[in-house]
Design a protein around this nucleic acid. Structure first.
Lengths: 187, 187, 187
DNA sequence: TCCGTTCTAGAATATTCGCCG
DNA sequence: TCGGCGAATATTCTAGAACGG
């Protein structure tokens, strides 16, 4: 990915540019989910995440790990305060992690991370988020809001009373709507 | 509410004060050791909107109209660029209006606004958003995504809430019926 | 509470001492849940939290708010790195917040906090966590892992239907109110 | 059994964008 | 073109679940 290799060249104003390039590669639109029947659009979050991790200017803060299979947040403070607000509308690490989980990323509990408590990096992984494999991004799926169906029974008595009142109200509203229309015609 | 009338008096530190007042009015839990979840909390958007419109420092940009029944955005440019980013995570007027619609606000097409096209102010209205009536805010309901909500905790409490809402609706319908009759006689 | 008044006197090593004193007051054991039939033991977390907030040595990092009804984490960085490991076995803000929620604390969204610009303080509240009222602590209950029994469940489906109808009605009433206002203006 | 820590998910609101009458 | 809305993603706050002490 020559494009991504260049990302580190400049400091500012680069963000938009690299994102736009990625968009043209992945069929992502910065602004729109896009309705074109073309390639599956990659969500903006994933595109930004890719640029984020790929950008060697951030390598002290967030970067691919040596094997290219995972990435780590090396400096939580700077990542939260410097990187996040440049890409997103917030600077909360928890919001960023919520997005990662929403897209199926899992935290990696490596031995290093587990042993060295206070200084451990935050490491995440996804089977379709690999260094040098941007074409895999389109396979990362956002989890959908599952609709729970749970059945039981409530005190039917009180509920019935409420339902009756509801019907009265509905009738009243229909009536008033009709009156309104009538008056409008009369005017 | 006399207190809210005073809100506009000062410039800074105003937010804390008005917020405390709002909390005490809405039962947003800054006050009492009472244990229950208390009254339904008012969404942040509505609270912000109220302070926004109420703040006389913004009166050149957004303000109540003379009758206190509606409010208008008087200076679209300044509202978008100055006010919005101070309260929200964006500076798009369309996003702001989407929120208004989501909470049931309607654009007012008054004759003045309708006639003078290019210079017309943007005027909005909601039956429970009235100057001097902050206690009505809790009746403004966000429209639901038609997905099932609150599957988990329901009981007699929730049923009671539904009943309370029913009463509010019944009052509203009586009121409207009265207004209709009045108008009919006037015609 | 004379004990708490002394908390601020010294700087270090005081922690254990004040905690022990509180334990003797509240019947809390630092090490064990204690089975004594005496006063309800206050969980260690709550005791530590109280000392944490009360200690004026931490007042730049975490402190009661002016009304004594809520407390705020003023310096997230220092709180995470300096305070947390002194009281708990970790230095993760998210773990601390998880505990707060587990005991029923709720985040306070004040307007000041809501303003986008300022990296606002993190403010929490609990009806039984009040400045100068340590005797209320024993009323704060940890949420239990509820094993859902079918019997305990109430009919969510039917109630949900009623709620949905209610929302439709509310929407309809708002609409009609709007129409009425429009007609009034036109007349 | 209860509490503490961690990782992930649920639920509600917020922001964006396009459709439709 | 305009106002209102559906739908998808984004952000926030809280809860579920697994594990250990």
């Amino acid at each position: 990915m020559f494009v991504l290799g260049c990302v580190a060249c400049c400091r500012l104003g680069l963000l938009d540019w690299s994102l736009l390039l990625l968009c043209s590669i992945f069929g992502t639109s910065m602004k729109e989910p896009s309705v074109s029947p073309g390639p599956t659009p990659v969500p903006v979050f994933l595109t930004k995440l890719w640029v984020l991790v790929e950008d060697s200017a951030n390598c002290d803060v967030i970067a691919w790990n040596t094997n290219g299979q995972t990435f780590s947040i090396l400096d939580e403070q700077r990542f939260t305060k410097e990187i996040l607000p440049r890409y997103f509308k917030h600077s909360n690490l928890s919001s960023f992690i919520r997005q990662l989980n929403m897209y199926g990323f899992r935290k990696v509990m490596s031995l290093e991370n587990g042993l060295v408590k206070s200084e451990s990096a935050i490491e995440f992984q996804h089977p379709f988020f690999k260094k040098g494999r941007p074409e895999l991004l389109e396979h990362i799926k956002r989890k959908v809001n599952s609709v729970k169906t749970e059945d039981a029974h409530l005190s039917q008595d009180n509920l019935q009373k409420v339902i009756n009142e509801l019907k009265v109200l509905q009738d009243g509203q229909s009536n008033m709507d009709f009156k309104l229309d009538t008056m409008r015609r009369e005017n």
